[in-house]
Amino acid sequence: MNATRRGILTAVPIIGAGVLGVGFWRMLSDMRSGAFDPRAIKNPNVGKPIPSFAMPGLPGLGDGFTDAELRAQHRPVLVNFFASWCIPCVAEMPGLRAISRNMPIWGIAYEDKPENAAGFVQRDGSPYARVASDRHGRVAIDWGVTGVPESFLVAPGGRIIWHGSAALDPQIYEAEIRPRLAGL
């Protein structure tokens, strides 16, 4: 029995390391071919109309918004899910502020205490034209959000035409979002 225990103790580490190693190698080789992007997420809602929702606002940042208001816009809107507890969201803020000079961004605070989210948004200047609170993440489920930050480009009339799961910056805006705006 002792021998079995030793066998397990000695075999488990190498098997574990092997599994991790193979996984890492797959990730790296897929990253090089572009098949694996640690920051990318596929969303099934692209090309479909936005789901219906109504959300309250954050303290000190005005009222929330509803799907009807979003649909009624005459310009494309970038909808951005964020949270104060999310580190990439901190990194994303300067990029969002830069993009907000070109188009309106509507923010949705995902599973966040309203006071925390409000503080986060106001920390260095808000990039959002409007902000709403999705306190329990119900709206995010309908949108197919799997984490934060995620962003959706919504065309006038309320159709989702693009989805991004990376922290946005002006490069992504130029490469992915701006060309799509031209087609609207």
Binding site: G21, F24, W25, M27, L28, S29, M31, R32, P38, R39, I87, P88, V90, A91
Partner: peptide
């Protein structure tokens, strides 16, 4: 570059393969 982090080093999969 496998892990998402705010501490960004210049991510380069080729380097990653060497270290791996």
């Amino acid at each position: 570059g496998i892990l998402n982090s705010v501490h960004a080093f210049a991510n380069d999969p080729a380097r990653g393969v060497f270290i791996l």
